[in-house]
Amino acid sequence: MSTDMIKINNVNFYYGPTRALTDISMTFGKNKVTALIGPSGCGKSTLLRLLNRMNDLIDGTRVEGEIIFEDRNIYAPDVDPVEIRRKIGMVFQKPNPFPKTIYNNISYGPKLTGMGAQNMDDLVEQSLRQAVLWDEVKDILNKSAMNLSGGQQQRLCIARALAMKPDVLLMDEPTSALDPISTAKIEELIEELKKNYTIIIVTHNMQQAARISDETAFFYMGNLIEYNKTEKIFTNPDVKQTEDYITGRFG
């Protein structure tokens, strides 16, 4: 199964005494866009943050089960989460550029993680081109990233993640804080990026999931209800609950 990028086996996740995810097992295909959908609090963002160990930052959390990436369990005791995050990048709900110049936002990760061997100027340009931002910012690389618009900032954050040359890109509702035009640009970008990256995206926007993803997983109350081809989920789902959700009958 060389087409699997990440494999989740029987994962339970707890915030203190509260179980947020129950016995999740699923695989994410290589160079596929997988959408995670479900009502607020269903555990989809929690699952996403498990994949690059961002939940480690929250006190009192506990993981059971295993998540296999590159033939090893990323929750094995000998695995360094910093190492995992270099290969599994993340884009957040709200654009969160550093209060630095555009150039330094991109070069920050590669420089600090010892990827600086190659030409940094080239890497910055290449990353910004990949995020379709280069033409808009090539003359203001030394200006603060805080002056960019929300949509530009989010593409900058994508470029920043891409500069690390990750294998997987996790996106946590990347367009929920953006206007429709910026959203369309990010969606086009995702379409383009899936040629080279495995993308897992959490979204509240049903049409967005239908438009951009190959596979869709529907979560409800910490359970994986249905995981199928996106086309199937949105036309003829196997589970009644899924149908109720996507047709807006609940949630």
Binding site: N52, L57, V82, R85, M164
Partner: peptide, 14 residues
């Protein structure tokens, strides 16, 4: 902002 820390850590920065 906590988002700065998250952004930096998510890049594999220690």
């Amino acid at each position: 902002p906590q988002t700065f820390r998250e952004a930096s850590l998510s890049l594999g920065v220690s």
